[in-house]
Amino acid sequence: MVREQYVTTTEESGVLSPVSEYIYMIGIYGWRKRCLYLFVLLLLIILVVNFALTIWILRVMWFNAEGMGYLQVHEDGLRLEGESDFLFPVYAQEIDSREDSALLIQSSENVTLNARNANGDVTGSVSVGPSQAEGFSKYFNISSNHDENLFYADGSGAIVGKGKLRVTGPEGALFEHSVRTPMVKAVLNKELKLESPTRSLSMDAPKGVHVKALAGNVDVTAHFDILLHSAEGLLILDAETVRLPKLPVGEAGTSGDSQGMYNMYEVCVCPSGKLFFSTAGVSSTCSESQDC
């Protein structure tokens, strides 16, 4: 238009010609156009790179409409429905299962619970391994839901609390030293046997040993001697009948020889039951000797 005006002015006459001299053609062409094209191209390249980066993010993070892969990010935390691998320690204050689900902790090696003190030394440990379960600590305590002590063990001993301790293994319990108890009793309807298979069995009590069988017998059997010994007191056989079933019967010898060779005695009894002996004669000598 500017050019057209110029031509028109020229055609008309010199009157308009001075006016058109002040108008310059202004536009984008030439080197400016090429620069603009180049600049747009540059922006396009940056845009593509940026888009590639974004695609890269989406790809690496497995982005989908709900989250990243199986991972969902909520305002109150993360939720992961697949498996997660933690190759290094996981620090957490609390690990919970879902409300309707059990929490399973497993390993092909040991699973170990360690508690430490301020210095970092392990003070309590529970470990379950392929071949053994092990715990070490100052003490181990089992209590019921009512906080009653059921079992307690520490370096100085193990305590079984209320109720009773039952040992059901076929070899029973083995005490390398002593068992301290006020009573040893048999299982109901069974016999109680005290046995020392290869050595002796002894019963010691300063105030007396009492053997009672209120509805049966007391039998004492020995391969060799049975010795009843009282240091200062009496030996009392208190029964209606006292029997010596295997006493040998003496045989009469020649009167002269026997009298001269042996001292013989006769057993006599006081009214109180006290036994004493008296030198035997041809007839009873009990009445002649008295020590009642």
């Binding site: 048999a186 109680l192 002796s200 019963m203 010691d204 009590a205 300063p206 105030k207 007396g208 040993v209 009492h210 053997v211 009672k212 069988a213 209120l214 509805a215 049966g216 017998n217 007391v218 039998d219 004492v220 059997t221 020995a222 391969h223 060799f224 001697d225 049975i226 010795l227 009843l228 010994h229 009282s230 240091a231 200062e232 007191g233 009496l234 030996l235 009392i236 056989l237 208190d238 029964a239």
Partner: peptide
Amino acid sequence: RSLYMEAPKGVKIEADAGDFQATCRSDLRL
């Protein structure tokens, strides 16, 4: 203190290869 062995149906003491010995300071009563 004292030591009691009590069994209503009977008490049996056996020493198959040795002696049986009962010793006390005061009275020994069967």
